[in-house]
Amino acid sequence: MSKLDIINSILNENFKDESEFLSEKDKDKHGKDFEMKRKIIGGNQLSYCVYKYDVAKDILPFFKTTGVTGLKKICDYLLFIEEGEHLFVFLIEMKKGTESAKRQLDAGQCFSEYIISTINRLNLDIGISNQNLHFRKIRISESKSKKVTLKKGIIEKENGVIEHQHPNCFFIQEYLTY
Rank of each mutant, 00 (worst) to 15 (best):
K3F: 00
K3A: 00
K3T: 03
L4P: 00
D5P: 02
I6T: 15
N12E: 12
N14H: 12
N14D: 15
N14F: 10
F15L: 08
F15K: 04
F15Q: 04
K16P: 00
D17L: 03
D17I: 03
E18S: 14
S19G: 06
F21E: 10
F21S: 05
F21Q: 06
F21K: 04
L22F: 08
L22T: 02
L22C: 00
L22R: 01
S23G: 08
S23F: 15
E24C: 03
E24M: 00
E24F: 00
D26V: 05
D26F: 03
D26M: 04
D28P: 09
D28H: 13
D28Y: 13
K29C: 04
G31V: 08
G31H: 08
G31M: 08
K32I: 13
K32L: 13
K32Y: 12
K32D: 11
D33W: 08
D33N: 14
F34E: 09
E35S: 15
M36K: 03
M36L: 13
K37M: 10
R38P: 03
K39S: 11
K39I: 08
I40Q: 06
I40V: 15
I40L: 07
I40S: 04
I41R: 03
I41N: 00
I41Q: 00
I41A: 02
G42T: 08
G42A: 15
G42V: 04
G42I: 00
G43L: 04
G43Y: 01
G43C: 07
G43F: 02
Q45I: 01
Q45K: 04
S47I: 00
Y48T: 10
Y48A: 07
V50Q: 02
Y51V: 05
Y51E: 06
K52T: 07
K52M: 09
K52I: 05
Y53V: 12
D54K: 03
D54L: 02
V55N: 14
V55M: 10
A56H: 13
A56Q: 14
K57Y: 11
I59N: 04
L60E: 07
P61R: 12
P61L: 12
F62P: 00
F62H: 14
F62D: 08
F63H: 12
F63S: 07
F63I: 11
F63A: 12
K64D: 14
K64V: 08
T65H: 11
T65K: 15
T65C: 06
